[in-house]
């Protein structure tokens, strides 16, 4: 009798647990309800609705470089963004300057600054990484269900830069041109070096009077 109660109890327990553990649906109904993530569409929307408006509020690169020399912590606290922990942070910057040289992979620009006039490199060939995606601080990782989708957004943003931002600029720019630019840069807070800053461009214009 005891055994019967024991076995019946066990079976009931398993049944209750199983009933609360799984559910069944028709696969075609589930698939019809699911929407797949379109990274290109998302990147396009992010570019026009969030990134481009945010660029107007970006810090002048000369001002940032000065601030980095005088108060590094404030510069990072006020202007840097990053999604993960660590020393590498991204800044959204803008500025203007004179083209010093047009090289195979980059355009060297001497920026207009109140104090010194450092040179920066605008990347025109190798546009990779997450700098543009992360620099604005306007993207929320929690809105993505997996990191593959999230990383694909970076890929699509970089594609926009490679296909739409760089070609019209690259085809016309020459040494001595005055240019305005905005873009994203990457700096390491712990091992800070401002000697070879590379800008991943978001907007590039030749503004010779």
């Amino acid at each position: 009798m005891k055994k019967i109660i024991k076995y019946t109890g066990s079976v009931l327990l398993v049944a209750v647990v199983a009933y609360n553990s799984v559910y069944f649906k028709k696969l075609d109904e589930v698939k019809a309800g699911a929407t797949s993530f379109d990274a290109a569409k998302y990147a396009e929307k992010f570019w026009t609705e969030k990134l481009t408006p945010h660029v107007a509020k970006a810090i002048e690169i000369g001002q940032l470089l000065t601030l980095l020399q005088t108060d590094k912590n404030k510069a990072f606290a006020d202007h840097a963004h990053a999604l993960g922990i660590g020393n590498v942070k991204y800044f959204l910057v803008k500025g203007s300057g004179i083209v010093k040289s047009v090289e195979e992979n980059q355009v060297m620009v001497k920026i207009e600054s109140e104090r010194e006039k450092p040179e920066v490199a605008i990347a025109t060939e190798y546009v990779f990484g997450n700098a543009v995606r992360d620099a604005s601080g306007e993207i929320d990782i929690n809105a993505f269900t997996n990191s593959m989708d999230f990383n694909n957004v970076s890929g699509e943003l970089n594609k926009i830069i490679r296909e739409k931002v760089i070609p019209p600029f690259r085809s016309k720019v020459k040494t001595g041109d005055k240019v305005t630019f905005s873009g994203a840069i990457e700096l390491n807070k712990e091992h800070l070096s401002t000697r070879s800053i590379e800008i991943i461009p978001i907007d590039l214009k030749i503004v010779n009077e």
Binding site: V17, N20, S21, V22, Y23, F24, K25, K26, L27, D28, E29, V30, T145
Partner: peptide, 22 residues
């Protein structure tokens, strides 16, 4: 997150939190 799909039977087996943990 994804459950189990059984295309041959047009079946989707979803798992609750309890089910997935078990």
């Amino acid at each position: 997150r994804n459950g189990i799909e059984v295309p041959s039977g047009n079946l989707y087996i979803g798992f609750t939190l309890l089910g997935a943990v078990i």
